[in-house]
Computed example of a mutant assay.
Amino acid sequence: MTREGPGSAPREPREPTLTEQARRAQLIDVTVRLIAEHGNAGTSLARIAEAAGITKAAVLYHFRSKDALVRAAHESALTGLVEHVGGAVGSVGAERAPAAYVRSMVGYLRDRPGHTRVIVDAVADSEDRRSSERWRPLADLMHAARQAHGTGTEAGSALDLRTTALIVGGGIDAIVAEHLDHPGYDPLAAAEVLVAMLDRTLFP
C-alpha cells in the first residue's frame, strides 16, 4: 500500500466499478423492500445480507453501516418520486401543473406501495426536513397556474397558497394511506376529486 508523504495532496475517492455499482443498487433495492415489509427497526444488517445473498461483511464493504444503507434507500425512494412527479409536471402547461402534480404523486405511490412505506419512513425519520420543502413547490406551481389562467392578476383574487398547498398535500397523504390500509379503495378516483376541488379553488 502506498502511503501519502508529508504535504502530498489527498487522493481522490476511487470511482466504484460497474460491478460495485450494481451491487450497491441491489442492496438499496433489497433494503427498500425489507423496510416496506418490516419497518426500519425490523430491517437488520443480517436480514439485508441474507436477502441479498451475501455476508454482512460484504454489505459493509459497500456501505459503512446499516444507517448509511437505510439513508441510501430513503434517498432512492424519494428521488424516484421527485423525478416522476417532475416529469409529469414538466410535460404540461403551467395552468395544468398542479393537477399533474396531484395525479402523478398519487399514481406513483399507488403503483409502488413498497416505496410509499419507505418514503413515509424517511420523512418521519428526518429531523431536519422542513415542512416548507413539501408545500412550497406545490404553492409555486399553483401561483404559476393562476398567473397563466389570469386569475392571479384579478382584483380580489388573493389566495393563501401556503395553506392551500398544505391542505392538498394532506389530502394526497390521506388518499395514499387509505389505499395502503384498504387496497380496494380507488386512489386515482379520489385524486380526481381532489383535482376538481383544487381547480375550483385556483380558478373561481
Score class of each variant (00 low, 15 high):
D67I: 12
S104H: 13
S76K: 12
R96I: 11
S91P: 06
G107Y: 04
L69H: 01
E95W: 08
F63P: 02
R112W: 10
K56S: 02
F63H: 05
A97R: 05
P98E: 10
A99E: 15
E95A: 14
G86I: 12
A100W: 03
M105F: 15
H74N: 14
G86C: 09
L78G: 08
M105V: 07
A100Y: 05
A100V: 11
G53I: 06
A57W: 02
A68Q: 06
L60A: 00
Y101V: 02
A77Q: 03
R110V: 14
A94K: 14
A57L: 05
A77I: 04
G53L: 01
A88Y: 11
E83H: 11
V102K: 09
G90E: 02
K56P: 01
E95P: 08
G80Y: 03
E95M: 13
Y108K: 02
G114Q: 08
A88E: 15
G53A: 01
A97V: 13
R103P: 07
P98R: 08
V59R: 00
K66Y: 08
T116D: 02
E95Q: 13
T55M: 03
G93D: 09
A88N: 07
K56H: 01
H84N: 06
A99N: 09
P113V: 12
L60K: 00
P113Q: 11
G90C: 05
A94D: 12
R71I: 12
Y101D: 02
H74I: 07
A57D: 06
V59L: 01
A58S: 13
K66Q: 14
S76H: 15
V92L: 11
V70C: 03
G86K: 09
T116V: 08
R117C: 05
T55R: 04
A77T: 04
A97I: 12
V118C: 01
G107F: 05
P98G: 03
K66L: 11
Y108D: 02
V92C: 12
A58K: 12
V85F: 02
T79F: 07
H74P: 06
H62T: 10
V106A: 07
H84K: 05
E75R: 13
V59N: 00
T55F: 05
A72I: 02
V118E: 00
H62M: 04
A68R: 06
A68T: 09
V59T: 03
E95C: 09
H84M: 05
K56W: 00
V59W: 01
A77F: 05
V106L: 07
R64H: 09
G90M: 04
A99F: 13
A94C: 08
P98W: 12
R117I: 08
D111R: 14
V92M: 11
D111Q: 10
M105I: 05
E75K: 08
R112Q: 11
A57E: 08
V102L: 09
L78Q: 14
R64P: 03
K56G: 00
R110E: 15
A58P: 06
A77E: 04
L69R: 00
P98H: 08
E83Y: 07
S91M: 10
Y101H: 15
I54K: 06
